[in-house]
Structures are given as structure tokens and as C-alpha cells.
Amino acid sequence: MTLHVDSPAAPPQPGPRRSAAARGPQRGGGWARFDLRATPYFLVSPYFLLFAIFGIFPLGYTLWVSLHDWELAGDKSFVGIENYIELITDEAFWNAVINTLGMFVMSTIPQLVLALVLANALNKRIRGRLFFRLGVLLPLITSVVAVAVVFTQLYGRDYGMINWFLGLFGTDAINWQNEKWSAWIAISTMIDWRWTGYNAIILLAAMQTIPKDLYEAASIDGATARRQFWQITIPMLRPTLIFIVFISTIGGLTLFTEPVMFDGNPTMSGGATGQYQTVAMFIVKEAFRDFDFGYASAAAWMLFALILVGTLINYSFTRRIGGSK
């Protein structure tokens, strides 16, 4: 098969084949025209059909439910924005919001720094590159539940390896579940362990597209390695950093599996006083432990608002990174 490789801007080539293609297949008559017009919609329809049922409908319906005092089998009475008003004054909800935001910040910032360091190291010439790349991706392959089980045991008060290790330096055994700060640290390390390598690989892919000539020229100009990193690497990585912060925001604000498994029992309370209850846990607790569907739906929309605001803040912040220095 011979192919014309024209740039799209090039004028149409003379010749029967080319002009037939440009005008579309008219030889087949009505069926061919129908095929050309309608088949694209047929091809995208499975996705949009499913999306309507399992995407759009739940979103709209959640909004509707959130305006009601709604129980699964019982009463469904319209209450307007009452659920939202109650939510805004609910200390348990704000506690969950603070926990979610706290663990998000606590996990994302070290994760980004470590991923940058790791990507920089992976970008060097070394024997067995593929081996190292596969190695840092191992945690991503491990399922979240498994990560949480292993780390919860490592953080165990009596027999956990981390307390044993800290004990070597004379630290008393810490009950990691007991306090906000310690539970946040434990859960954040689970998140970071799983995601740092993945982020490093994504950053590495972007680093490899930076022309090495840039660095060579900068070296000749006498720029130090640190200066090169801040003035070449970071600005060139900006789209990737925005992407990572974006993904981390959505993942971090919907945090669920790690704290649930860390708790050990599925009451969704996140510790005795809710030290590590996240918003996602709050939603599931209100809906499926207390069966207050209206309230849970209002919380779900608040979570969505939180994600939108978080994304916007992070976007404007990340956009400024290594900006026009």
C-alpha cells in the first residue's frame, strides 16, 4: 500500500485517489455517507451511555438527595439546604476535613521532594537502569489494602518494627493510632511509600525530554548544579508537576482505604475520637452506618467543592513554580 504523507496544510494533490479521499467516499452512495456521518456517534455511544447511568445520574441525584431528609426505606422529605447548614456547624465534619487536608499536605510535599530527588538519580547513567525503574515501581503494584496491612503491623505499638527501631534510640513505644499527629504520619508514609516511585518515573520521563545541551551551555556559563536544577530542570518540569499535584489532590482528598485499614474495624470512625477520619469515611459512615443518606449526599457535594477549590489553589501555586525568573 502506498501512502501519501502530506502535511495537512498542503493543497490537495491532483489524481483520482487523493481527490476521492478528500471528497469522501461517494461511490458507496447513501450507505457510505450514513456510515461516515453516524458511525462515529455509534463508536462513542457505549462510553456515554454508561457514563450517563453511572456518572451523570449519580451526580445529579446526589444533589437532589442532599436537599432531603432521606432514608433508604423510610421518609424522604424536602428540607432545602438544611443538610448543608447542619454540616457547616458539624464539628465532626470539620474534623474530617482538617484530617483530610492535614494528611494531604503531610504526604504530598515530602512525596514531591523525594520524587524529584529520585527522578534525578534515575536520570543518571548507571548499569541496570531498567532494574532500578522496576524496583521503584514495586510499591505501586502492591494493592492499597496490602500496603495498609503491612504498615499497620510495622507501626504496631507492642511488636511493630518501627517502635522497636525507635526504641534502639531510647524512644518509648508510641501508640501510633492514638494521637492525631502520629496517625497522620503513619498514614502519610503509607501514601508516600506507594506513590513516590510512580511520580519519580513520570518526572523521569519528562526530564528525559529536556535537551542536555541546555545543561552543557549552562555549565559553560558557570552555572552551578543547584542553579541548573532550579533554573532549567524545575521550569521544564512544570507541566508534569502540575499533573502530579492534580492527581495527588484528587487522590489525597478522597483518601479512604489506608485510614480504614489502619483502624482495623470498619466503623468508619477513624479512631476513638476521629483522629484520622477522612471526609470519604465520614460520607460512608453517615450513609451506611447511620443511614442518613441526605446528610451523606450533602457531605459528598462539599467534598466535590473542596476538591475544586484545592485543585484551583494548587494549580495557581504550581503555575508559579520556577516561573519567569
Binding site: F51, I53, F54, G55, F57, P58, L59, Y61, T62, V65, L72, F246, I250, L253, T254, F256, A280, I283, V284, A287, F288, F293, A296, S297, A300, W301, L303, F304, I307, T311
Partner: peptide, 18 residues
């Protein structure tokens, strides 16, 4: 745009009713 929406967490209640 919808890739940004956490459909799972947002939709649990109606999905469950469905």
C-alpha cells in the same frame, strides 16, 4: 473534565439506591 470528578465517592448514595 469529568475525569476530575471523584465519581465513586460522590455517587455512593445514588449508586447504592440504584
Amino acid at each position: 473534565v469529568t475525569m476530575m470528578v471523584p465519581l465513586q465517592q460522590m455517587g455512593v448514595v445514588p449508586l447504592y439506591e440504584l
